[in-house]
Nucleic acid binder design. Structure first.
Lengths: 157, 157
DNA sequence: GACTAACGTTCGTGCGGCCAACGATAATCG
DNA sequence: CGATTATCGTTGGCCGCACGAACGTTAGTC
């Protein structure tokens, strides 16, 4: 009784950029999630480890700003990572409000592992696109993202 | 005290398609959410109304397939919409397992309203891109999405 | 009539993003 | 100095979206 296109989304949606964006992001998120949970990780873990690896030890607040993780979510994230000795949390001797978070050797290994997973996943995600098209998509997305990041972040004051 | 790039995400992320995708999607989602909550709607409502408008009355299961809304989430969605007389839920006389969901005139008006909001939002979302670039982005996203939709949906059997 | 499948419903899970509040500590200004 | 303001970490909660498990009801099928 149902037509072959019983599962086709309304036409209104299929050309709506915001919808295309959130839908493809959902697929991307699913792929990443699957790849990450296979090694007992999730997005926040990767972001945090990446920020630590790139910028070195930092306070939770600074890490939150850099990785885009809300301060209130940093706590659990660091708990999870420190339980597995992927990061270390120590009080900052120079500022007793702060903790200093440091990535451990195990943390770096995990980060490399996640990097590998991600590389595979990108290829999977962008399978239908040529290398040039992948670059183009990346470039366009980066510009859109940059634009909106500036607006929200440049609360310069 | 903090460098100007204190809030810059790790380099590893800034060229990662899956990350660019989910981040821009987050911005898109935020913009859409704001526009929708202003008229007491959310994404599911739009999707459902759009599916109804395009395909006509249908069962909840069929609507779920078309709009990509999980069957278990359809219940609440239809509850919310029917409370405001935007859709009607009636038992299907020809199949007592089913309900027939119908969009009401008020529902169509709401849908038009949401369409307008969305048009504005797309422009906002893609502000940094030229018309050609917007088309290109749309095209690329549609291809990626189509690819992954096929994989997950064509479990036909 | 037994079995299978579809439908609608309820409940619960997970991730990601976010807000409110609070105590502790630092920095600043009178 | 003391009072005020700001930052930091923490807890607890909420929302949106996607998804799974389970259950009773009803339709088709053998």
């Amino acid at each position: 009784m149902q037509t072959p296109s019983d599962d086709a989304p309304p036409a209104r949606l299929t050309t709506l950029p915001s919808w295309l964006l959130t839908q493809t992001a959902t697929h991307a998120h699913r792929l990443v999630s699957e790849g990450f949970t296979a090694v007992h990780a999730r997005g926040y873990h990767y972001r945090l480890l990446a920020a630590l690896d790139e910028y070195g030890p930092a306070s939770q607040a600074a890490l939150g700003r850099r990785s885009g993780i809300h301060l209130s979510d940093m706590v659990a994230t660091i708990n999870e990572l420190s339980e597995r000795q992927l990061v270390e949390r120590e009080p900052d001797p120079t500022d007793r409000r702060r903790n200093v978070i440091t990535i451990t050797p195990d943390g770096r290994r995990q980060l490399r592992l996640l990097d590998k997973q991600l590389t595979r996943i990108q290829d999977n995600l962008l399978a239908p696109l040529s290398p040039e098209e992948r670059d183009e998509l990346t470039r366009l997305l980066a510009r859109v993202l940059d634009h909106h990041d500036r607006r929200s972040t440049r609360s310069d004051g």
